[in-house]
Write a protein that binds this DNA or RNA. Structure first.
Lengths: 187, 187
DNA sequence: GTCTATAATTTGATAGAC
DNA sequence: GTCTATCAAATTATAGAC
């Protein structure tokens, strides 16, 4: 049995990934779970608290599911990253939570905006380490890391913009394979 | 002197590109212009009408500013595309309006969602024509078009996620140059 | 075209009983 | 922890005067 707190986070994350922070209300979440909106305030006093917790949980789970940067070979690491973001796209064409929050960052409560930024910092850091052997030049390594992360987040957007499920796969594979020379296996 | 209707569109576009469709109200827009929110309803009966008009104007202006696909060489075309989206990023780190709307597409009024999708269809179409000489294989051409559009939209997101103005430039250049072999000139 | 006035609903949030 | 009850403010939208 999942705790109420976890169920709130699950439902809110799903809503935020579909329409952003401003697209859902405490009542929306409460109704879907079958509780009252006042109960959500017990777990998360303000909506900003909820959004911050959403982004923090998402970031931690996301990177926990990825291999530590130098623990496996480059190809495996890149595969895991692509497939992690692809999972967002698969079930219902959802955005990456932090990609969504970065897009709307100017209209987020500051504490939530900060957590969203932490996801990108950690993502770039992870990628730079993954690319460290293949790309000894620091500037070029940063450029590739930025390009890969941008390409994957953008692939989620184009998939939604075109409404075609394969949109993510084609774009993501093209970007990562061209930039790294590694062959990606989607699963 | 700009018409009130145009000023409404200007201010609403800016708000939508910062925080998305749900982040601003008719009153926000009215206050900034110095009119009453009821006056906006005269020009745009519902918020869905406003959002649809926003996306339509954005799409038309965007592609009107780009060269016709085969009228100039590939390098020039790609340069124009990158710099057009870079303009979004430059002034205040804003998103592309239709990139933002694609991200939140599940929570948009249907008529607005449709217009946002039209932007991506037209963008892919434009890119496929630009790449037609260099890439005779249709599948590969589509893959490159998707990857370029995804990469540029994603570069806007990572720039916002990292909060670093150069984030767009570095990612966008790396993606387009690697995918096409053409050298990009930012201006 | 823009205003005042207002309706109808939704929103984030709090107090206090159980 | 979850509820009922309630609040103040904000939201989209309409009616009708000027």
């Amino acid at each position: 049995m999942k705790s109420t707190k976890a169920r709130i986070l699950d439902v809110a994350e799903s809503a935020a990934r579909r329409g952003g922070y401003h697209s859902f209300s405490f009542r929306d979440i409460a109704d879907e779970i079958g509780i009252k909106s006042a109960s959500i305030h017990y777990h998360f006093p303000t909506k900003g608290d909820l959004a911050r917790a959403l982004a923090e949980r998402y970031r931690k789970e996301f990177f926990k599911a990825l291999p530590a940067p130098r623990s496996v070979d480059r190809k495996t690491s890149l595969n895991e990253l692509v497939n992690a973001l692809r999972a967002s796209s698969q079930q219902d064409g959802m955005m990456c939570l932090c990609g969504m929050m970065a897009a709307e960052v100017d209209a987020l409560p500051p504490e939530a905006a900060k957590e969203a930024r932490a996801f990108f910092k950690q993502g770039i850091d992870w990628l730079e380490q993954v690319l460290s052997d293949a790309e000894p030049n620091a500037d070029k390594r940063l450029a590739k890391a930025l390009a890969i992360l941008a390409g994957l987040e953008g692939a989620l957007i184009t998939r939604r913009g075109l409404g075609v499920p394969s949109g993510f796969d084609i774009a993501a594979r093209e970007i990562v394979e061209t930039l790294t020379g590694e062959i990606i296996t989607l699963r």
